[in-house]
C-alpha cells in the first residue's frame, strides 16, 4: 500500500505543472458562471466531471515525455503497482475536481443570494449522477488505450468512445414501424428512475463491470509494453 501511496504522490508531482493557479482559476470561473446561469449546482458538478475526464491523459502525457515508465522499475515498482496506482490517482483526481466544483458552486450560491437569485437545488441530482456515470465510463474506456499505445498515439483513439456514443445515439433514434430503440430505452430508464434503489444498483453494477474490464485490459496491455 505504501508503494501505491508513493506512486500517487509521484503522479501528482508529474501533473503538478498542469494544475497551476491559472487552471484552478479557470475551473473556478467556469463553475461560478454555470452555477449563476443554470441556477443548479448539479450542472456545475457536471462540469467538474467533464474537466476530470478531459484531464485523464495528463499523467500519461507527462510519463511519456519524461520517460517515467523507465523510472518506475528503478523505484522498485511493479507493473501491477503502476497500473493500480494510476487508476487510484485518476479516481482521486475525479473526486478532487468534483469536490472543487461543488465548493465553487457553494461560492456561487452565496454570490447569487447577494444578487437576489435563487439556486434551486444544492443536492446531488439523479441527472448529475447519470451524466457523471456516462463520462466515467468513457474515461474507463480511454485508460486502456493510454496503457497500450502511450499518450501521443492514444490521444486520437480516446475520441472513439465519444464518437461511439454519438453514433449509438443516432442508431437508437431510428424508428421502425413507429417504434424506436430510443423509446424502449427511455421507457426502461423512466421506470428505473422511479425506483431509485434499482437505478443505484444498475449504475453501480455497470460501473463495477466497466472498472473491472478496464483494469484487466490495462494490466494486460501494460505488462507487454517495453520502454
Amino acid at each position: 500500500m505504501s508503494k501505491l501511496k508513493c506512486f500517487i504522490g509521484l503522479d501528482f508531482m508529474a501533473v503538478k505543472s498542469y494544475l497551476g493557479l491559472k487552471s484552478v482559476l479557470i475551473l473556478l470561473v467556469c463553475a461560478l458562471f454555470s452555477t449563476l446561469t443554470s441556477g443548479t449546482v448539479s450542472t456545475t458538478a457536471g462540469i467538474g466531471v467533464i474537466v476530470a475526464v478531459i484531464s485523464t491523459g495528463y499523467p500519461f502525457a507527462v510519463s511519456e515525455k519524461a520517460g517515467l515508465d523507465s523510472l518506475y522499475p528503478t523505484l522498485s515498482l511493479s507493473k501491477k503497482q503502476v497500473v493500480s496506482g494510476r487508476y487510484l490517482f485518476i479516481f482521486l483526481f475525479d473526486i478532487s475536481t468534483v469536490t472543487f466544483a461543488y465548493i465553487s458552486a457553494a461560492l456561487g450560491k452565496l454570490l447569487s443570494q447577494i444578487f437576489g437569485h435563487n439556486i434551486s437545488n444544492y443536492g446531488i441530482s439523479w441527472e448529475f449522477l447519470a451524466v457523471s456515470s456516462a463520462f466515467i465510463i468513457i474515461q474507463l474506456i480511454q485508460i486502456p488505450f493510454y496503457f497500450k499505445f502511450s499518450y501521443s498515439k492514444a490521444k486520437f483513439m480516446t475520441v472513439i468512445p465519444f464518437a461511439a456514443i454519438f453514433a449509438l445515439y443516432g442508431v437508437v433514434g431510428i424508428s421502425v414501424n413507429g417504434i424506436s430503440l430510443e423509446m424502449i430505452i427511455m421507457e426502461f430508464l423512466s421506470k428505473l428512475v422511479e425506483n431509485k434503489l434499482m437505478l443505484a444498483a444498475v449504475t453501480l453494477t455497470v460501473l463495477s463491470i466497466t472498472v473491472f474490464i478496464s483494469y484487466q485490459l490495462s494490466m494486460a496491455f501494460y505488462k507487454k509494453r517495453e520502454f
Binding site: 508531482m13 505543472s17 515525455k65 519524461a66 520517460g67 523507465s70 523510472l71 528503478t74
Partner: peptide, 12 residues
C-alpha cells in the same frame, strides 16, 4: 541508476 538522460519531469 544514472541513465543517459534523466527520467525526471522537465518542469521539476
Amino acid at each position: 541508476v544514472v541513465m543517459d538522460s534523466p527520467m525526471y519531469v522537465d518542469d521539476w
